[in-house]
């Protein structure tokens, strides 16, 4: 049997790690606050994909729920921060 999948999983994990490093560099360096929000957004999407890949590796359905939660909270966080930059207030009266 050709077991390609473990290699692909390792490759994907390394690629996601580098992607997160790119996002982290932009997060630290970003000239404007919007750049940092964008970098955080990228960071959470990449981490969600990492968790899904780990879920494939270990074959546990629990990782799916973690990924769903990361998606939910990441969206709420990015939207709230972007809204704050836009208006100076997250929930307007």
């Amino acid at each position: 049997m050709t077991a390609l999948l473990p290699w692909a999983i390792s490759f994907a994990l390394i690629a996601f790690a580098f992607a997160m490093i790119c996002a982290a560099i932009r997060l630290l360096r970003g000239p404007a606050a919007e750049d940092r929000v964008l970098a955080l957004d990228t960071l959470y999407v990449n981490s969600m994909m990492t968790v899904l890949t780990l879920g494939i590796q270990y074959g546990a359905r629990l990782y799916f729920d973690i990924a769903l939660l990361i998606a939910l909270f990441g969206f709420v966080g990015s939207a709230a921060m972007a809204k704050f930059l836009l208006r100076g207030e997250v929930i307007e009266p």
Binding site: W7, A12, F16, F18
Partner: peptide
């Protein structure tokens, strides 16, 4: 590891999807 008893076509397909997806995410970042 529970990724041992899968047929070869699924192995190949899933591997290429994973590689493609991670490369795209890396390029995007």
């Amino acid at each position: 590891m529970s990724v041992e008893n899968i047929p070869a076509w699924a192995d190949l397909l899933a591997s290429s999807l994973l590689v493609l997806g991670s490369v795209l995410a890396l390029i995007g970042s």
